[in-house]
Each structure stands twice: as structure tokens, then as C-alpha cells.
Design a protein around this nucleic acid. Structure first.
Lengths: 225, 225
DNA sequence: GTTGCTGATAATGTATACAAAAATGGCCAT
DNA sequence: ATGGCCATTTTTGTATACATTATCAGCAAC
């Protein structure tokens, strides 16, 4: 399975979803660089739908701050500086930490089993002679999604959905060496232990550390580039 | 100025904004009780606009979880139980605490002056023979908005905008006695001190306490009803 | 040369018509 | 009587035409 996490290759259900995925892809791939205007009709032509679903997609991208509105109600691609990235990670650390704490309180045996199974898959992907980055990313995302669902907070899920920034994770992970990936899997193991013990504080602390390490890994990649 | 915080009486700029305000008003006023379907055409008739701006408004209300989508892509008014309310306050405590910490680092003298002026107005409103609740609420909101703007994080502002739940604050404040209102003003004073000292931890702690007290005040009102 | 207006142009905002999908109700078979 | 299936009806999704608003070029006045 090719690594197409940021492309819009998977046919989504509705035209609005397709538009969202495709426009988001354009932004993340850098085809639409910061400051580029996002004109509804042009995008409608590109995606092959009408303006209506494009408008829906742009509204979502605006909420998630992929796009910002200029004074005259026009949309342009947002420019994320390093402070923005740091802030995204800070918010994720806080909110996913909170999610982990809630999950520690509520996780069922079935969910714990799912997490163990998921992390086992991650460990396999990491241990391969040539680590399977795409597999790692997919399972990593699933791992965090299981926790989010175990946290049983629709609000938290909604807020974090716009914050996950898979692209950043992905860009970072492509530079990870095996040791980094293994460390990530190890931290997941600690999380599972904390959940099994129903220790909220432990779970929150491990998750916070997990995310903040990702921030610094990302910053290292950027500065060494 | 009458107390119309939750009504849609103020003529918003666009039809979409009017629709948003009016539909939100219907939900908050209880005219549309939990589970009530939100049909686009019916709402368009009520607001006096077409379905297009109503759709925009419903999308926003959906993101903010005022409405939830049923299996068949229909929208109904969401049902907030006490756990949801507690979760909203928990998230606000975390995020506004974070905002306060950032504001403590960044607040300018001008912003501090604005906060002092704003809180002075609150103290006046509270000290009146008949406390001016509407004024209290308006200035309270402004106080928190100034902090949010001083925190200089567009992401935080966006997330908190969907979480402020002014209606809850309002419902609570109408039951506050003068002592409660005065305590709130006092906590604002502490916040200003923390900002002036540029003490992030202090600011975060005071803000967290401020919000969590509001949660318990709200819960007391509910349980004593 | 610069500032401010004004009309042309191009973008977003809104309304409406049409398409697709889902819910409802009745009918038939069992 | 009940359960499943199909047609009708309702509702949402999409396309497009029209209205409104912002931008920008050009020109005039200073």
C-alpha cells in the first residue's frame, strides 16, 4: 500500500468531502503556498464539483486554520510559523493528555486489548529490516484514535480532529530513525500500562511527554534541514 | 440596554450570521428542545432567508455541538447532560488557563490598563443597589476576550469561541448573589496582578480556579432547582 | 507626485432549481 | 397480526443563476 496519507486519492463519500480532502492536500503538499488565494470557482474547477461543496470544504479548512480570511472576506492559505507549530503541539499535549486521563478512568478490557494489538503492529512495523513508515503512521493514528474514543468526549474528539495535523507527524516520522520509532512504541506501552492501572495522572503524564517529545523531534528536523 | 444576550435581536451583518444567532437562540431558549429535528427549509422560513445561509449556520452549530447528526445525515438539537457541562468547564479551565499563562507572558501595558478598566466597570455593576447582571455579563465577557487576545493564539481563540457557552454563564449569573459576583471581580483582580507580574503559573492557577468555581456554582444552581 | 474618487471587474453571499438519499406508510405475504 | 418490501414523500446534497460587496485601474484634482 503506497503512502498517500496526504493525497486525496481515497474516494470520499460526498462531493464536499472530496473537495475538503483535495484542497487540504493541495495546501499540505505545498502546491498552494501560504498566502495563495483560495477562490471558490477555481477550486470547484480543479475538484470537478460546483461551488457549493467547495464552500463547505473551505469553511471546514477555515475553522481548522488551514486557511485564513483576509479583510475582504477572501480566503488565503494560512502561513504557519514555528510558533504556530509549537502552539499546536502544546494544545495537543494538553488535550490529548486530558483524553488519556479520561481514557484511564473509562477504558474497557476490549479497548485495552485493541490498544495492545495496535501497538504490537507498530512494533512489528518498526522492527522490520526496512521500517515500514506508512504502516507505523497508520497504526499510530489508530492508537490515538482508540484512546480518543475511550475518552468518551465528543467535544474533545471534535476539537482534536482539527488539531491532529497528521502531515506534521508524517513529515517528522519520515526522518525518524529506528530508535525514535521504537521509543514511540515504548511510550505507547507505558500508556497501556497506565490505562490498565486506571491511573489518570500517570496516563496524562505519559501522553504529555509523548506529544512534547514529538514537538522537539519535529523542531530538530526543521533546524537541521 | 435590555438583556438580550441569548436572543437574536441584534441585526448581524450577513444572513448566515443572522441565521446562526437566531437558531442558536431557539436552542438556548429551549424553544427547540433536545432531539428536535433541525430542518433546513423550516428554519429558512423562520429566519426569513434561504436554505444556503441556514446550512452555513447549521454547520457551525454542528461543529460547536449544539446540534448532532443522526444516522441519516439529519440534524437534531443536542442533549447536554451534566457530564457534558462538566466536560465543557473542564476544557475551558484547561484552555483558558493556558490562555492566561500566555497572556501573562505577553500582556502589554495597554492591555493591562484595559483589563483594569474593564474590571472596574464590573465592580461598579456589582456594587449597585440592584446589581446590574447584564452589565456584569457583558463586561465579564469582554474581560475574558481581552485575555484571549493578549494570549495571541488564533487557534486558542477559535477553539474557545465554540466553548464559551455564554448561555450557561448567564443562567448561572442570574442566580449569583452579590457576594458571588464580588468574588468573581476579586479573582479578576488577582488575574491582573498575575499578568502585571508576568507570572505564568500564577495566572494559570487563578484562571483555572476561576472557571472551576463557575462550574460548581452552576452545579449548585442546577441541583437546588 | 500623490491622494481620492469612480466605474469596471471579479470575488463572495444568497436564492432557487434539481438530484440523490433517507424516512414514512401502506401493502402483501406469511 | 406481523414482518419485510416497495412506492411515496420528505429532507438533504449539489448545481447554477443572481445579488451584493470588495478590489483595482484609471483619472481628476490638488
Amino acid at each position: 500500500m503506497p503512502d498517500n496519507a496526504t493525497s486525496a486519492s481515497n474516494a470520499a463519500s460526498s462531493a464536499a468531502d472530496r473537495a475538503y480532502a483535495e484542497i487540504r492536500g493541495l495546501i499540505l503538499a505545498g502546491d498552494a503556498s501560504p498566502g495563495t488565494p483560495l477562490r471558490e470557482e477555481a477550486l470547484a474547477d480543479i475538484v470537478g464539483v460546483s461551488r457549493t461543496p467547495v464552500r463547505d470544504a473551505l469553511r471546514r479548512l477555515e475553522v481548522e486554520l488551514y486557511a485564513v480570511r483576509t479583510l475582504g472576506r477572501r480566503l488565503v492559505v494560512a502561513d504557519w510559523d514555528s510558533d504556530d507549530v509549537a502552539e499546536i503541539f502544546a494544545l495537543r499535549a494538553m488535550l490529548e493528555g486530558h483524553a488519556a486521563a479520561r481514557a484511564a478512568r473509562r477504558a474497557t478490557q476490549a479497548q485495552l486489548a485493541e490498544l495492545r494489538h495496535c501497538n504490537a503492529a507498530i512494533e512489528v512495523a518498526v522492527a522490520l529490516p526496512q521500517p515500514d513508515i506508512a504502516r507505523f503512521l497508520a497504526e499510530n493514528r489508530r492508537f490515538h484514535d482508540i484512546i480518543l474514543s475511550a475518552s468518551a468526549s465528543a467535544r474533545l474528539s471534535t476539537i482534536l480532529a482539527g488539531l491532529v495535523e497528521q502531515p506534521i507527524v508524517r513529515r517528522t516520522a519520515t526522518r525518524y530513525d529506528r530508535a525514535d520509532l521504537a521509543r514511540s512504541a515504548h511510550e505507547h506501552g507505558q500508556l497501556i500500562q497506565a490505562f490498565a492501572a486506571h491511573d489518570e495522572d500517570w496516563a496524562r503524564a505519559v501522553m504529555t511527554a509523548h506529544i512534547r517529545r514529538a514537538l522537539h523531534a519535529f523542531q530538530d528536523v526543521i533546524s537541521s534541514k
